[in-house]
Write a protein that binds this DNA or RNA. Structure first.
Lengths: 205, 205
DNA sequence: GTCTATAGCCAGATAGAC
DNA sequence: GTCTATCTGGCTATAGAC
C-alpha cells in the first residue's frame, strides 16, 4: 500500500511551506518554522528542496498555478459574456475564501520580483485578451453594451474580485465590520459585483 | 542659515528608508542598504531611530498618513456625490503615480501585522462611512441612484483605484502592455473609473 | 553628530550517524 | 530517508574614537 499524497514527506513539507510563506513572505518565513509546521526537522527540508529559495519557488509556482486557470476561464470560455460575468465572481470569491492569503502573497512577491512571470514562461500559459475582445466587439456592434476596452473591463473585474481580500484589514476598520460582518459583505459580493458591472456596461433600451 | 528639510540627516534617513522599505518590505530591507541609500553609515541609523523596527514604524506611519486623508476626502467632504466620484480617481491615481510602491507596501504590511491599525489609534483618525451613507440614502430616496450600500460602493471605489497598482506586474503581462502602454491605461482610468461607477449606480430616466 | 570596528546572535546550510 | 550536531555567513546593534 503506497502512501497517500497527504502522508508523504515531500507533500507535508509543501503544505507546511505554503501556509508559512503565504502568511509571512519569503524573508519573514523561517525554515525552522516550516519544519515545525510539517512535523519534521530542518535538515529534511534541504534534503527535499536543497535551499529556501527553491522551496519558495515550488510554493509560489503552485500558487500562481491555482489562480491562472480561473482567469483563463473568464477570458476564453465560449459562454455568453453576461453568464461569465455572473459566474466569475461567485467562483473566484468562493475560491479566495478558501485561500484568503493567496492574493496578498502572489502580488507582493510579483512586485518584489516581477521576473517570476517571465522566468516561469507564464506568458505562454497565461491567457491573452483576444477572446474577450472579440466577444465585446460583437456586443458593441449589436448595441447591447456600451463601447468599452477589453483591457479596462478585465482590470475592473479583477480589481473588484481580488482587492477586498488584499485590503481586508483596512476595509474592516473603515466599514466598522466584525469578522462575521465582513464575511457577509464578501458573500454579498458574489452577486453584487456582477450586477454592478452589468449595470455599468449594458445599454438600456 | 538652518539646514533645509531635505538636507538634514534625520530626513535623509527617512527618505532613504521609505524607498528601501517600500520596495522590499520590513524583512527584505537591510540596514546597510538604507545607510548606503542615505549616503551615511549604519551606526547613524541607530543613533537616530534606535532600531530597525522603530525606523520601519516611522516610515509606515508616514505612509498610512499619506493615504488616509485622500480617503477621508471621498467620504466626508460636502461636495455632490457625482463630483466626488468624478474627482477622486483623478486625484488618487495622480497621487499613486507618484508613489507606485505605496499600496503594495501598506497592504502587505497591514496583512502581516493588522494590529498596526489599532496600535496607531487609527480608528479615530480614519473616517467612517456615515457621511457617505447619508448622501447615498438621500439620492436613493430621490430616485437618482439605485439602492446600494455605502460599504459596497466604498469597497468598489477603492478596488478600482488601488488594485491596478498592486496588480501591475500581472496586468501588464495579460494585457500585453509595454511600460508606456500600461501608463496610458492607468491615465485613461482617471476618467474611465468615474464613468463606470456612475453608469453602474445612476437610474436612467 | 559622525565615523570604524566589532560584538553577539540567528538563520540557512551541511556533515555524518543511524 | 530521517535525525542531531555543527559550521558559516550575514545582519542588527553597540562601543568607543574623533
Amino acid at each position: 500500500m503506497v502512501k497517500t499524497k497527504e502522508e508523504n514527506t515531500e507533500n507535508k513539507i509543501l503544505e507546511a511551506a505554503k501556509r508559512i510563506f503565504q502568511q509571512k513572505g519569503l524573508f519573514g518565513a523561517r525554515m525552522q518554522e516550516i519544519a515545525d509546521e510539517a512535523g519534521i526537522n530542518k535538515a529534511l527540508l534541504h534534503y527535499y528542496f536543497r535551499s529556501k529559495d527553491l522551496l519558495f519557488e515550488a510554493v509560489f509556482t503552485q500558487a500562481i498555478g491555482m489562480m491562472a486557470p480561473k482567469i483563463d476561464n473568464l477570458l476564453n470560455s465560449d459562454m455568453p459574456l453576461e453568464y461569465k460575468i455572473k459566474h466569475i465572481s461567485e467562483q473566484y470569491i468562493t475560491f479566495l475564501n478558501k485561500h484568503p492569503y493567496l492574493p496578498n502573497f502572489v502580488f507582493h512577491e510579483l512586485n518584489r520580483n516581477p521576473k517570476f512571470l517571465e522566468k516561469m514562461a507564464l506568458q505562454e500559459k497565461l491567457p491573452g485578451l483576444d477572446g474577450l475582445k472579440r466577444q465585446l466587439d460583437q456586443l458593441i456592434v449589436e448595441g447591447k453594451i456600451i463601447p468599452i476596452s477589453a483591457e479596462q473591463l478585465f482590470i475592473n473585474i479583477l480589481s473588484l474580485n481580488i482587492f477586498p481580500f488584499i485590503g481586508k484589514p483596512l476595509l474592516k476598520v473603515v466599514t466598522k465590520s466584525s469578522e462575521e460582518d465582513f464575511e457577509a459583505l464578501i458573500e454579498e459580493r458574489k452577486v453584487f459585483i456582477a450586477d454592478f458591472i452589468m449595470n455599468a456596461i449594458t445599454v438600456k433600451s
